[in-house]
Simulated scan of single mutants.
Amino acid sequence: MTALAHELVGAAAHLAALGLSPGSSGNVSAREGDRVLITPTGTDLAALDPRNLSVLGLDGTHLDGPAPSKEYPLHLAFYRRERATRAVVHLHSRHAAAASCHAPWSERSALPPLTPYFVMRVGQIPLLPYAPPGDPAQAAELERLGFPCRAALLQNHGPVVAGTSLRAATEAAVEVEEASALHLLLGDRPVRHLTTAEATALATKYGTYWEPAH
C-alpha cells in the first residue's frame, strides 16, 4: 500500500494548502481491497508521514499503525454503502461548516443545485443531525440512509465526502466548500437553481446522484 500512502499524503497536503483543514482538523482515508489507510488521530494534514498512517479493516479492526482518527466510523460507513468508494475526505472547511448550521435545502440535499459542477462532482448532500464528533451512531445513520449519496453535511460540524478515487474525493470536497460559499453569499436573494431535469441529466452523465426534492 506504499503508493497509496504517498497518494493519500499528497491529497491531504493539497487540502491543507487550500486552507480547508485548519489546525489538526480533518481526516482522509483510502481503501485498497479490504484494508483502509486513514490519517491518525490529532494529525495535521499538511505534515503527514506515509510510513505512519493507521490501517483498518472494513469492520473497524485496527490492523497497524497509530490510533486512527476518531471519525473513522464515518469513513467505513461510506465504504460499506458503495463498493466503488475508494476514498473519503472529512473537513471542517469554513463555508461548509457554516452551511451545516443552516436548515437543509431539502430532505435529500443540504445545498441546492446552484451550479453544474456541484452536481457533477458531488450530487445530493444530505444534512445529518448533530452528533458529537466520532459518534458511531451518526455513522450508522449515514450507512442506513435510504437513498444514494456520496457526501453528507454533519450538522454544526462540516462535510464528509466519498469518491471513486482520492482525486475524485478531494475535488468533491473542494466543490462542497465552493458551493457552500456561494449558497451563503446569495443568502435570501431570489436565485435560479438548476431544474430537477437539468440536475438529473448531469448526475446521470457524470455518475453522481440527484433526485427530486422531497
Rank of each mutant, 00 (worst) to 15 (best):
R83V: 07
A203R: 08
M1L: 03
P136V: 08
S106D: 02
V55N: 11
P50S: 04
Q138C: 01
H214W: 14
H90T: 14
S24I: 15
R81M: 03
P129K: 00
K205E: 11
Y130I: 04
C149R: 00
G163N: 12
V176F: 03
H183C: 08
V174L: 09
V28F: 15
H6C: 01
L182A: 11
Y130T: 05
S54E: 11
S100P: 00
A169V: 14
G26W: 02
H92E: 04
P190K: 15
T195P: 02
H90N: 05
W105V: 00
T115K: 02
A11T: 04
H14R: 11
T204G: 04
L153S: 06
L186G: 02
H75Q: 13
D34M: 14
S25V: 01
Q138Y: 06
A47L: 06
N156G: 03
L145V: 02
L74M: 15
G42Y: 10
G158I: 13
Y79D: 01
G163K: 07
A213L: 13
L20V: 03
S165L: 14
H75I: 01
K205W: 04
V119N: 02
A213V: 12
P22R: 10
Y206N: 03
V174N: 10
G207F: 06
L74Y: 09
A151R: 00
T85L: 02
C149F: 14
E32F: 13
P112E: 01
E143H: 07
V36E: 02
N52R: 11
E178V: 10
E211M: 09
A30T: 14
P190G: 07
H95N: 06
P132H: 02
L4W: 11
P73D: 12
F147R: 03
R121C: 05
T195G: 04
A96D: 12
E71R: 07
P132S: 08
H6W: 06
T195C: 05
N27I: 15
F147G: 11
T115R: 03
P116Y: 05
F78P: 13
T41R: 07
S54L: 13
A87W: 04
D59C: 11
T208L: 06
C149P: 04
S29M: 04
A3F: 01
R83Q: 10
H75G: 11
L127P: 00
S25Q: 15
G207A: 10
T39E: 09
L48S: 11
D44H: 09
R189Q: 08
P116N: 08
S21A: 15
P159E: 02
A197Q: 09
H90E: 04
A172C: 10
C149N: 03
D188W: 07
A137I: 12
A11L: 05
V89Y: 13
V174E: 13
L20I: 03
T85I: 09
P66T: 15
F78T: 12
A67D: 10
N52I: 13
A168C: 05
L53W: 07
T170L: 15
T2G: 08
C101H: 03
L154K: 11
G158E: 04
L111C: 08
H62F: 15
R150F: 10
Y117T: 06
G26K: 04
T115S: 09
P104R: 08
G57H: 09
